[in-house]
Design a protein around this nucleic acid. Sequence first.
DNA 1: TTGATTACCTACTTACCAGTCAGTACCTTT
DNA 2: AAAGGTACTGACTGGTAAGTAGGTAATCAA
Lengths: 184, 184
Amino acid sequence: MSSTKDQITVLADELMRSKGYNAFSYSDISKPMGIKNAAVHYHFPTKPDLALAIVKYHSDSFDRFTERVNEKEALSKIKFFLNFYTSIQLTGRICVIGAFATDWNAMNEEIQEAMSTFTDNVINWLTSTLNEGNSSRTIELSDSAESEALSILTNIFAATQLSRITGSDHFAAIKQNILTRITQ
Amino acid sequence: MSSTKDQITVLADELMRSKGYNAFSYSDISKPMGIKNAAVHYHFPTKPDLALAIVKYHSDSFDRFTERVNEKEALSKIKFFLNFYTSIQLTGRICVIGAFATDWNAMNEEIQEAMSTFTDNVINWLTSTLNEGNSSRTIELSDSAESEALSILTNIFAATQLSRITGSDHFAAIKQNILTRITQ
DNA sequence: TTGATTACCTACTTACCAGTCAGTACCTTT
DNA sequence: AAAGGTACTGACTGGTAAGTAGGTAATCAA
């Protein structure tokens, strides 16, 4: 029993990550929900307001994710993180980071700042998780934890994009390559 | 002294990779060129025709690139490949692969096939170049050449996207991480 | 009970977008 | 000199996009 506003946010996020920001309209939201365009504008006056809500939605989701896996072992945390991307790939979507990066120059400063903060949070979590695993000897690092974090993040979010073009086998190969690299 | 058609293609490619396919219009091409919208439609009747021309433009560029570095040593080839992405990053653009992946569901089958072929060509070139370097002992592989190729490709094209959000330092770190990984 | 607030709908405006078509100036070929 | 192709322009259309003004029914708080 989620509110209309929440439903709009979820649907907008789905559209954003399957068609792209400039490829969906208020009608793509109002029609399947059985409401009018004006109702969407009531909750999100402008499209940038909608985009900002999508970023906040992902920020909150990520916070809940890190909370949920907090007590787990570092390598297990990384595996959960990668599995999250597997579900993105299976549903034919791409990662928010890639979606916003493509449309970056169409976004206002407020959205860009929110996305920067969110992305920094993801990188910081990955970095500290890798350090954690390195200390407990379940993860092997051959470069700085931050460099490895950046490498893993770009691998997995680009894998969701690449697999759209060349097929899901490549997603699986990239995911496996990451795990091989950090466990040797 | 390049033809109007070529100029349109180059400009469309720039727009596609800085704003995204659905964020630019025929006016964004005709206005700065000092011609009319109808002139652009004369050369490229529909927008998908333009998108196809962009893919072909990159296919041809890549063929010329592989030709140009053909006689070089494998590791040197990889470095030239990575430096190409540095120039993409410096001009604030993103890689075609990422740009088309985001707008994938807005593309028709013909464009998708052309992009698939192009991307496969890039992956195959990377794979055989890595194998070549491994044979001549200038490149170290810790996984199959194809897996490493996929990893490098996703790293570098996503780096152009990520650096839009978090800054160019991350691009440099990812690029360095790739080189460290394959030379140890 | 009244007055404000919430969550919409109806109906509209403005603006732009892709795409078309008739016409034209200028070559080139026959 | 006539005919045909190339590379456009001018003027337009139909459609859709984001966004808004004004109204209404239901709920809630004083």
